[in-house]
Design a protein around this nucleic acid. Structure first.
Lengths: 202, 202
DNA sequence: AATTATTATGACCAGACAGTCATTAAAAGT
DNA sequence: ACTTTTAATGACTGTCTGGTCATAATAATT
């Protein structure tokens, strides 16, 4: 009897349209009506699928980070320090096009950092990334590839912050591929030496 | 005859109050009236000193970067690796209140990353920071405090990115002071070992 | 075709907000 | 004390936006 709609698909389509609109006009300059137009729906309809504008935003980020989390989750556990560093290398040495996503991300979602919920989502992702690194580090410590005196959790989380910084700068500022590569290489060499080394008596 | 006021000081005081209010409630959630209350003035008074809410915001960032640039410029040259690391420590271990600037920064200026000019401005700052670090590193290499095989410019610039990442995460996400301190300590220990070490034959 | 549960609509509302301006207060000089 | 110029005020306004809801459309089933 009733009209039936694929709600999941609808939500997804709406998010796509919202993302488009946000990217075009800027987040705060985009009203819910604008999103509705972009989605080819009436404003009221949006509120059937999302409780609020903020809920849409959160959902977009959710979706994006879920994808990233999957990528992390299926990362293999490394058995040598060099393999781990190679992993970091791959994460940092992203293609320019993917790097530019971050620019759009800040452009579109910068204002969203006002929202606790939004910030919490992003925070959770980086906690996950940090935990992932920590696990790898702990494992390598057991194998004697990394000095045992380091606190894996702390180093792991900081590595996540630092990777974020590196990737961000790569995406936001015009650092040439060549220069970026050299920076990565030098830095990884430093990390390699640092992680291997026994405790310093200072 | 006329009532006379130190306009520069007044502007500064207003910016302080505005920054406080923005940090507490979030930029978009803070009305000009809120800023007025925070400043202990009437709304209309603010418009004597600033043309618009946006003008206040721009002024805040200008001031912030000017301060940072000064701090870098008059940074003393370190003569030991530990002193240099101590410097990094100070930069990273910023008080929570100052860290909150970054949240507001992204909230307000996220969209501005669309502008080439704006991005270039921020980029220039980080180039400066990177160059500053590079100089320190090169100097410490001459003193034998840091292994000579590292490319100072690359490490310096990457350090700037990474510091940014670390400070950003500290400001954006709720990382406790205690945890943050531990992360810093562990990381600096790692950097210390890494920077000291002779080239790895890999 | 009639029925009915579901989905879609967009005019409408309440309230919030940036910015204005006529008025009042303050203080520096006479 | 009086004048004069600058500074401060806050009620007011026009606009805009997130969110609601009574009503209309839709399609699956009988």
């Amino acid at each position: 009897m009733p009209k039936i709609v694929d709600k999941a698909k609808m939500r997804n389509d709406i998010l796509d349209a919202a993302m488009c609109a946000f990217a075009e006009k800027g987040y705060h300059a985009t009203s819910v009506s604008d999103v509705a137009v972009a989605a080819g729906l009436a404003k009221g309809t949006l509120y059937i699928y999302f409780d609020s504008k903020e809920a849409m935003t959160t959902a977009i980020v959710d979706r994006h980070f879920a994808t990233l989390e999957d990528q992390i989750a299926c990362g293999v556990t490394c058995s040598t320090l060099d393999a781990f560093l190679e992993d970091l290398h791959r994460t940092m040495d992203i293609p320019a096009e993917q790097a530019s996503f971050h620019r759009v991300f800040f452009e579109v979602f910068g204002p969203s950092f006002a929202s606790e919920a939004f910030t919490a989502h992003v925070a959770r992702f980086f906690e996950g990334l940090g935990a992932h690194y920590a696990k790898q580090i702990a494992h390598l410590q057991e194998l004697g590839e990394i000095a045992g005196h380091y606190h894996a959790a702390s180093i792991g989380r900081m590595l996540a912050s630092m990777m974020d910084g590196a990737v961000l700068h790569r995406g936001l500022f015009d650092i040439s591929q060549r220069r970026h590569r050299r920076m990565i290489q030098e830095t990884l060499a430093m990390l390699r030496a640092g992680l291997r080394s026994s405790p310093n008596r200072a």
